[in-house]
Design a protein around this nucleic acid. Structure first.
Lengths: 327, 327
DNA sequence: CTGAAAGCGCTTACAG
DNA sequence: CTGAAAGCGCTTACAG
């Protein structure tokens, strides 16, 4: 910019005016500056600009794994909202490691992102308190923050799971298994609670062996599902508590002839094409992202207000697998 | 930092030394400074730091759509490599609009990202020439850059498609359709070329009505596939040229009883579970991202070298749908 | 071991 | 209409 000013024989401020299209510069001067800009190939350095302005026009999004199909639409929705606000999006995957979540979040804070959207991996977010006290807008999504009060956008996990399990019960099932994520994860715990509620409301006792919790990879889920379907007194229906688990269950069921009822939490691509098509409790990942971004920019632009908690409804999509009667 | 210095009664440089763990400060001084840091809740502003350092420790990734399952693993791979280099990742979706790609890329340039990875939406990247001449490291991925010379990591689209179509021919098919993306897209054109090559090598004439090109949404692909399978002299096999198209084709085929052979370009989740399981020409999206990131950081750390072009091989995964004989 | 001065590339607040 | 000075929050190069 200094070079441009020198070449156009004007002051720095005049170059700044031209670059930013501010009024109050003679057409003649504007042209001289523009010629110098073109000749020197000058481009404004937005990082320097934003340092002076006191914001970064960027927000951070920390989630579990960008490669998980659940997070793609969510990220995209956040990105679109950010774009509408002239803001860039910095991404980070925590790989479900609390330590990595913290590291990423603090790196983003050090960059002074204007706001932060976090899908928690850990269950203690007190490390964010100083940042939030200093004015960092933060919204948690998919899972609530741990040990601090902050904006959160969640899915109705309890109600959704309860409705899914009740659906299986309504179709005559009594021996229903729950295959879920590790119980330390909020969504997993809520969905499990929904399962227990539906069973209790129908007056059905739950055998401890019907509940299989753990990592969502096929290595754990495959054997767990097979175990539930074997033995002297197998379950007649499965409630799978997230899309990674459902997909593995579908794969296992496809390998056996026996009809087993299945309802999954989360919709997934081709759920309508596999045979039988999979009945799911769908949540809207994109809307989760949109709502979180809306809350975030609301907070960035508005006045201070108390933390808000939004809960988005689920939708039962009936496709066939959940309506199989008990064998 | 000024406040910390004042409170600890030291100079700015000493605070800087403590914050960065540089040697040459008395234990006593270190402690005074650390107390001041804790009392004031000071956190270094990395944006300011990096401005002074002349880099931003961030790279930009511009792709078509973060919500497309093809890009999730690719992004994640780029992110992991960036992480290993202490670099953050800024994401942008072009929505396949050349104008939006340009806008995003230039916004990232204005932020002075250290490097850029681009999945092109447009076919003219001369707008990047001044930036690249000024030292911006840039790698194109999935599709080559248009009208400039630059690093690129591509899939062997031509060879992969040729092998996929040859596979159908080897299983007795003569009337094979090609359902692909708009021909302006490089990958689409290459795959079409592979189809024509395989047909020509087998001495088979291609009826113009067998080639259906256009947008990859179900609105276009669904009717196109149905049209190919109806009429007096329908095709007996389909080659679908990307995962969005294949998924729609699978959906259409599931709705009819007749066996039609199918080979798709790109693998996708549950390809092994739908019935029949789908034979695909798989490409490695994660490796595409990893290779691109490796090239980028190689360029950032190394000396200048001529632009490089990598081509990753595809893998034919035989699952059943591609081995259906002609009806 | 320690710190004052200059600078990264911009904008703000002000004066002429 | 125009520009010199100060400042955003740091680091670099240097001197003591």
């Amino acid at each position: 910019m200094k070079d441009v000013a020198a070449r156009a024989q004007v002051g720095l401020k005049t170059v700044s005016r031209v670059v930013n299209g501010e009024p109050g510069v003679t057409a003649d001067t504007v042209q001289r500056v523009q010629e110098a800009i073109a000749a020197l190939g000058f481009r404004r350095n937005d990082s320097a600009r934003l340092l002076r302005k006191g914001r970064t026009a960027s927000i951070g999004l920390v989630l579990e794994d960008l490669a998980d199909p659940f997070y793609g639409p969510m990220s995209r929705a956040v990105e679109e909202t950010a774009r509408a606000h002239g803001t860039l999006l910095i991404h980070g995957s925590s790989a479900a490691l609390p330590e990595r979540e913290r590291e990423l979040v603090l790196a983003l804070c050090a960059r002074r992102v204007d706001g932060l959207i976090v899908v928690p991996a850990g269950d203690d977010h007190r490390y964010l308190e100083p940042e939030m006290a200093a004015g960092l807008a933060t919204v948690f999504v998919d899972r609530p923050p741990g040990r601090i009060d902050a904006d959160a956008v969640l899915t109705a996990n309890f109600a959704g799971a309860r409705a899914g399990v009740a659906h299986l019960i309504a179709h005559g099932h009594r021996r229903i298994a729950f295959v879920g994520d590790r119980p330390g994860i909020h969504t997993a715990a809520e969905r499990l609670r929904g399962y227990h509620a539906a069973m209790a409301e129908a007056g059905l006792a739950v055998d401890a062996s019907w509940v299989a919790l753990g990592p969502t990879g096929p290595d754990r889920v495959g054997p767990a599902v097979r175990a539930l379907l074997e033995g002297p007194d197998p379950v007649t229906a499965l409630f799978t508590a997230n899309n990674r688990i459902t997909v593995t269950a579908v794969r296992v069921l496809a390998g056996r002839g026996l009809p087993v009822a299945l309802v999954g939490f989360d919709d997934f691509e081709l759920a309508d094409v596999v045979s039988p098509a999979v009945t799911v409790v769908a949540q809207d990942a994109a809307e989760l992202g949109r709502a979180a971004a809306r809350l975030l920019f609301g907070r960035l632009e508005g006045t201070a207000r108390a933390p808000e908690r939004l809960e988005l409804p689920t939708r039962l999509i009936v496709r066939g697998s959940g309506e199989t009667p008990p064998s």
